[in-house]
Write a protein that binds this DNA or RNA. Structure first.
Lengths: 221, 221
DNA sequence: TGTACATCAGTGAACGCGCGTTCACTGATGTAC
DNA sequence: TGTACATCAGTGAACGCGCGTTCACTGATGTAC
């Protein structure tokens, strides 16, 4: 049986799929192919160390050196993947809050559920987004930090507009503290469920609901 | 200047320290030397991938093959290190609870502080303890799981003995849920402070105190 | 309309490195006779 | 008291592998004249 040749690629003697060169002016297409392949590999492994330049090149069906046409190094590529996924996460939270309507408790709860849903559905990507060397290579703040700051402010604003009869609204310091609690606790939920899949965790929706209610100072649901 | 030769070791032509062979019957000494070196390397890097058999052998001052005298593989060695550190963490929590006296809120709070203190003081080891392949290599439960289960039960017992005037003690399901909240939130605090050292986090003691009070249903401290 | 040339989108061989693991070997030190 | 031997605690060379990165090169395609 002769192998059919897919449009835009052909089988090499070794059997690997080889990507057809882009048309003139379409060189940037390789860049997104590389990003997509790197993301797929990360999604599978959840391991920063498993993302090697040569493995990405193999996955894309391109010479290892071709990666350098678009990324200066493996770290560069990894940083680009992280930023894309980070944007995706913040977008998911914003969308969830919008869909939840005007009630601040609903909005905060919706974001919390969206956060753990993202982590649960993209464990490998989530792990890599938050993976880091203990000693960071450069002291520069990545772009995603400011994106996260906006999100943080939006959550604090929602927390402060929660009506608490007889107790008054949250102060800014209190809301900030609760926002930190939310983030750390949700990260813990995602991370530990990922790292300890054999534990019998409570149902995740119930856990998040109960957590949010306790943190914002309401009684159990 | 002739190099002085340390007791129990001598300098090789290459300049590396070389460990003197153990005396007869003392072969197990190498095992603890290997564990100590592996722990030190992990403490420095916080990265499972950085722990290579050859690097450990270099650190100990021994031939790479000598590792095999005590560990079947790198994974074996890593597992041994993890179990040691895990025992250390659970011991620290038990000690903190004992020192806190009989009040259940004090005991839970003391354990929470001990947890984040352990993580803050041993970030590399903590990271490795909770590092895992996304797909675990073997389906077998490590020994540390049962240790953790005992600790979990102790915390649940403390939570259930917290007096709540007018509300009654926590039910077992409620206490279990709160124990999960505590663990995930504390893990989040340790992990995110480690992974995002440039963020301006709140003072950790205040964060933990506030978190514990919210989770157990008391007002702010 | 032709054609020389510049540019684009890559390729392929080679480098030196550190890795886990194997294999047969080596000294020193106890111990049985 | 000697001495042969077993055991202990390692060693050292070698293997094949995948890695990041370098370097000079190659076709195809557009474009100026």
């Amino acid at each position: 049986m002769t192998r059919p040749t897919a449009a835009g690629s052909h089988a090499s003697p070794g059997g690997e799929r080889r990507r057809a060169p882009a048309r003139r002016g379409q060189g940037a297409a390789l860049r997104s192919d590389i990003l997509a392949a790197a993301t797929a590999m990360i999604a599978r492994s959840g391991d920063v160390g498993a993302l090697t330049l040569r493995a990405v090149a193999r996955e894309v069906g391109v010479a290892a050196t071709s990666i350098y046409l678009h990324f200066a190094s493996v770290e560069d590529l990894l940083e680009a993947v992280k930023n894309l996924r980070f944007r995706e996460l913040t977008d998911a939270l914003a969308t969830a809050a919008d869909a939840a309507g005007p009630d601040p408790v609903d909005r905060v709860t919706a974001r919390a559920h969206a956060y753990v849903r993202f982590g649960g559905e993209h464990p490998g990507e989530y792990a890599v987004m938050f993976a880091a060397r203990l000693v960071p290579a450069s002291g520069a703040m990545p772009a995603r930090v400011t994106i996260a700051a906006d999100l943080f402010d939006a959550i604090i604003a929602d927390l402060r507009s929660i009506p608490r009869p007889g107790d008054g609204a949250m102060s800014e310091p209190e809301a900030t503290m609760v926002a930190f609690h939310l983030w750390t606790a949700l990260h813990g939920i995602v991370a530990l469920r990922m790292l300890r899949p054999l534990m019998d965790w409570p149902p995740v929706e119930a856990e998040v609901d109960d957590l949010v209610h306790r943190l914002i100072g309401r009684g159990r649901a």
